[in-house]
């Protein structure tokens, strides 16, 4: 029979030899060698195709068919084996590429705001939500704006409340508070109603210490309108305290004295460190003083160009450094302007 032709035997043998050999091929090189040997031009299968013409005519189709079967079988086995070897190689490579994930990351230079700018930005954002716009005024001021127009005449005992740097130009000084901005804002805005925040650097003639600096920021609020009462002052400042210190913070407002407001007050918030039980931060009082405030004094309204029998207003001032110190437990106010990177890098 035609199947007895020795070519069939060779093909069968070729297939039988090739498949186990494939299993022996362990890497890409061996695989290629196997391919050359068993599917290359001189392989038994390919030989069968090229010598087809020499075979008896009647069995040529059968040989062709058989050779094709073998070729397909070998190719398919090769593809499977090849895929397996690639996967093994990948697995090996992945195993070898294992990192020490505990090594530190590659350091990148990082930018940061000064903590004071961050604090001011937070306050501005809150104030903006409450309708206050920023109004800035000079740091070097006249005695008039800093004191006299704020109802603090020369030699008035109230001047004891401020230790003042005077400049060599008579009648000028480094502002001791942001309050001169009250009269400046009023004079610029009259007769409009006003709702502004007056921020900026102020100066104090005092030896620096952990608690005291020669320059410090204040943020002052000023509201002037035809319908502004002490109730508005309480409501606005309570809202402000809640936005800064949290919704459930307890506040208290107690009488105080500033020459440019009357009635005047100081607002305390319950110490958020100890929850009012008493600790070192609140000096065992349970309260933290956060802002001074009051109804704008009629003399100040007059000096600003507003008739105190028709207009009223309130003002309030706070110290952002102090707020940051409380918030972050900063123990020395001098850290702020000395700009040691070991301090600055703690804030982001």
């Amino acid at each position: 029979m035609s199947e007895d032709h020795e070519i069939f035997t060779r093909l069968d043998q070729a297939q039988a030899a090739a498949l186990p050999a494939l299993e022996q091929a362990g890497d890409e090189a061996a695989l290629q060698a196997w391919k050359t040997a068993h599917l290359g031009r001189s392989s038994a299968v390919m030989q069968a195709f090229s010598q087809l013409g020499q075979a008896p005519k009647e069995i040529r189709p059968a040989i062709g068919q058989r050779a094709n079967q073998v070729k397909l079988a070998l190719e398919s086995a090769f593809a499977i084996r090849s895929q397996a070897i690639k996967e093994q190689a990948l697995q090996r490579a992945l195993q070898q590429e294992k990192l020490d994930v505990t090594l530190p990351g590659r350091p990148q230079p990082r930018g940061r705001m000064h903590p004071e700018s961050r604090a001011l930005e937070t306050i501005y954002t809150i104030l903006a939500e409450m309708g206050f716009q920023i109004f800035r005024t000079p740091e070097v001021e006249t005695d008039d704006y800093n004191f006299s127009l704020l109802n603090i005449p020369a030699y008035h005992p109230a001047r004891d409340m401020w230790d003042t740097f005077h400049t060599t130009r008579p009648g000028t000084l480094l502002r001791t508070h942001t309050s001169p901005g009250q009269v400046r804002a009023m004079r610029q805005r009259a007769p409009e109603p006003i709702r502004v925040a007056l921020p900026g650097m102020c100066y104090r003639y005092e030896q620096t210490s952990a608690r005291s600096e020669i320059q410090f920021n204040q943020v002052e609020l000023l509201v002037v309108g035809r319908n502004i009462t002490f109730g508005d002052l309480k409501g606005t400042l309570t809202d402000l305290a809640r936005r800064i210190y949290g919704d459930n913070v307890r506040t208290r407002l107690r009488p105080s004295y500033f020459p440019f407001t009357e009635p005047s007050g100081e607002m305390d918030v319950e110490c958020f460190v100890c929850g009012g039980k008493g600790c070192a931060v609140c000096k065992n009082s349970g309260w933290l003083e956060i802002l001074g405030c009051g109804m704008v004094h009629p003399v100040v309204l007059q000096n600003g160009g507003y008739d105190p029998s028709e207009w009223s207003g309130f003002a309030a001032g706070m110290g952002p450094e102090r707020m940051s110190m409380l918030r972050y437990g900063i123990e020395d106010i001098r850290y702020f302007w000395s700009n040691d990177v070991r301090f600055l890098e703690q804030f982001s």
Binding site: I134, G225, N227, I228, G231, D232, K234, G235
Partner: peptide, 22 residues
């Protein structure tokens, strides 16, 4: 002071003056 009721300002928002420099 504790007995004076707090309220939210009922005044209309005054004219806004943006601060582009800031």
């Amino acid at each position: 002071y504790d007995n004076i009721p707090a309220r939210r300002m009922t005044d209309a928002l005054p004219p806004m003056h943006p601060n582009p420099v800031l």
